[in-house]
Each structure stands twice: as structure tokens, then as C-alpha cells.
Design a protein around this nucleic acid. Sequence first.
DNA 1: TACGGTGATGTCATTAACTGTCATCACGGC
DNA 2: GCCGTGATGACAGTTAATGACATCACCGTA
Lengths: 206, 206
Amino acid sequence: MSRWKPDARGRLEKAALELYNHQGFDATTVAEIATRAGLTERTFYRHFTDKREVLFPGDSPLADTLANATATAPVPLPPLEVIAHALTEAAPVLEERADLARQRQTVIAANPELQERELAKLAALASTLARTLRERGLETTTAALAAEIGIATFKVAFERWINDPDRHTLAQHIRETLDTARHLTAPAEHVAATDDVSFTGHEGVA
Amino acid sequence: MSRWKPDARGRLEKAALELYNHQGFDATTVAEIATRAGLTERTFYRHFTDKREVLFPGDSPLADTLANATATAPVPLPPLEVIAHALTEAAPVLEERADLARQRQTVIAANPELQERELAKLAALASTLARTLRERGLETTTAALAAEIGIATFKVAFERWINDPDRHTLAQHIRETLDTARHLTAPAEHVAATDDVSFTGHEGVA
DNA sequence: TACGGTGATGTCATTAACTGTCATCACGGC
DNA sequence: GCCGTGATGACAGTTAATGACATCACCGTA
């Protein structure tokens, strides 16, 4: 038999998620996680730089899919539509692991430190997206802005999805949020006509 | 004479910024900061929850200005224009403290933990903005997205400003970045004509 | 078959970020 | 002149994070 039980990293991730869920992030100790995974605290730190990092898979299929879809979108497409394409392709990746996603999100929502880390991850994603857009020929500022708006759209859509009592698809929420984004950034001429009607945006899950 | 030297908090902020600048964030100890400010480590933690928080003033004139300007913008205005109005009003607040801002940004740029905290602060700002927009009558998703887009615009404009060798105004960069945002959805026609030319967005400091 | 290198893990020690608790003592009101 | 209050100091304790060294199954190779 082999010297060590396999998939130490996976065991640590599992143990951490469970403990964070049961006792909260603050109340659980790295040593605890390690012990539950049959390992040592020191070994935990060989797999994750952080007590937080254990919730954020280094191998992120979401990031890969997004980057790929962005790179391969048809070229003569306005930036926001490239983003739309990428987000739409990426949605199923999360749908597959819906309950894991919800569980993670519950833990994260309960702790500011974890929220910070999540924001950092999303920012890194935006950064990657921006680079890809530049490689597609977009000017720096345009690329950065489009990427940020893409991530913003994702954030909003994701949150709607997680809290949606009707359990609509993430893809569905992304479509709708993108639509809102399209109208927000649309040239102002459209609105000049509406004088007494305040702008209320676009509503509802179709 | 009074028992304690005045403005303990201010002294701590100053000492911290100096030390973070000279030796880096990681290499400076809270005890060091406190000593340089003529205080105790324990007292540092009575003024700031964190070693990082000392760089992020609780009393943020930027946040106040943004929220105010958002609340008081003329009502029949499309969301993005409300944001434009708010950002434009807020710009001078930072211009006044340009070198402090640059100094802070240098420190933050050198440390991931500080970048995380900054993202958290911006996210909080977005959250406030969104609430204000909702109070103006915007639907939840529209408000959230508009707020995120506003903050994204600010981030991009701010970064351009900090790194601008020509030292143009922050307000100027905000105007241009907003313009880029307005054109992100550029209808396909714009691009359809250009067949071999990739979409390059909008350029340059006018 | 023996042997040496490798990689994942364990053990131990250390630093410093944070927190709880109690003591101090000028200041201001009464 | 006494008393509560608030900002600070003193001290002890927890634990996150890191560096240094030891262990030892496994694997290729002579």
C-alpha cells in the first residue's frame, strides 16, 4: 500500500468547508482542519498559502472557461458582446456544482475576510480578461473597462442566482443582467424622449 | 498641560504610512508604528481594527461626496449619467490630496493584502451607491449594476490618473473613461464596416 | 538486489497579529 | 474636594504563518 492516503489537498478542502460551515470560519483552527483531514498543520500550509485560500480552488475551471471563451469569440464583435459570449459559456461550469457553490457562498457571506479574498479573486479574473481583450486588439482602457463591467455583471447575476427562490438558471440571470448592462451603457439619445418618466431599468425573471 | 499628546489617531496614521513606505508593509510591526507615534501596540488596536485599516480613513470624504452627489442628482437622468455626475463631483476631493493619494497607492500596489482591503472598501462604496440609487427609484438589479459600473469606471480612471505621465486631471480621466463606458455597447454596425480592422475602442487624453 | 535520490509529510521553534482583562490617572462636573 | 469617565498602559494568552531539519516509502538504476 502507498505511504499516504491519496488526495491530501482534497481532504483538506473538504474538512475545511465542513468545519467552516459547522462552527464558522473564525472558530475553526487550521490545526483542527489538518487533524480532521488526517494531516498536520504544517502540511496544510504546504497546500494552501492561507486559512482562506482553501475555499478558492487554484485550479478554477471558471477562470479557464472565461479566458478561453473570450479569446475565441468572433472578432468583429463589440466588447460587451465578447463579454456576453464568455459569460454565457462559463455559466454551465458553475451550474454543475450548484450546491457546492451555494455552500461555499454561505460560508463566504458570513465572513468579511473571506469576502475580501473573493473580491481579490474576481479582480484577478478581471485582470486576466482585460489582458485577453487587449490581445484581441482592444485599446488598454477599453479592455480594462469591458473586463471590469463583465465581472460586475457576473457578480450581480451570480448573487441573483444564489438567492433566487425560483431556482432559475445562472445562464438565465446572466442573460437578464447583461441586458440591463446593455441598456445602462447605451448611448443617451434613447432617453432624451422620456421626460417625466424616471428611468427604472429592466425587470423580472422572464 | 493635557495628559496626552493630541491626535493619537493621526499620529498613528502618519507613522504607519512612513514606515510602510520606507520598509514595506510586511517588514513593519504594529509595535514599531505605535512606538514611533509615542503610543502602545494595544492603543493602535483601539484606533484601528487592523494593521491594514490604518491606511483607509474611516472618515472618507470621497464616500460622502459620492453618496451625496448621487442622491441629489436631477431625477429624470439615466443611471449612468447619475453616476457620471457623482464621479465628476467627487474627483476634486482626491485632486486636493493628490500626493497623499499617490503615496498611499504606491504602498498599496506593493502589497496584496492591502489590495484586498482596498477592493473591499470599493465594494462597500458600490454597495452604498446601489442603495442610494434604489432610493432614487431604480430597480434592484439596475441599481446594483449601475453602482458596480460606476465603481469600475472610477477604478480604471483612477489608475490612469495615478500613472499618467502628463499629469492630466482626475476629472479629465473620469470624463474619458465614462465616454469609453458609453461606447462599450457600440452597435455592431460600427464594427461591421471595419472588416479587417479590429475594434480598438476610444483612445487618448484629449 | 542493493543503493541513492526524490517528494510528501512530520516535528520543533519562532515571530507577530490580534484579543481580553485589569490598572492608571488627568479631566470635568457637581 | 470627591467621583465618574475616557484614553491609555501593562500583561498574558491564542493562533496564524514561516523556516529549518528529520523521516521514509517509492522509483529508477547499476
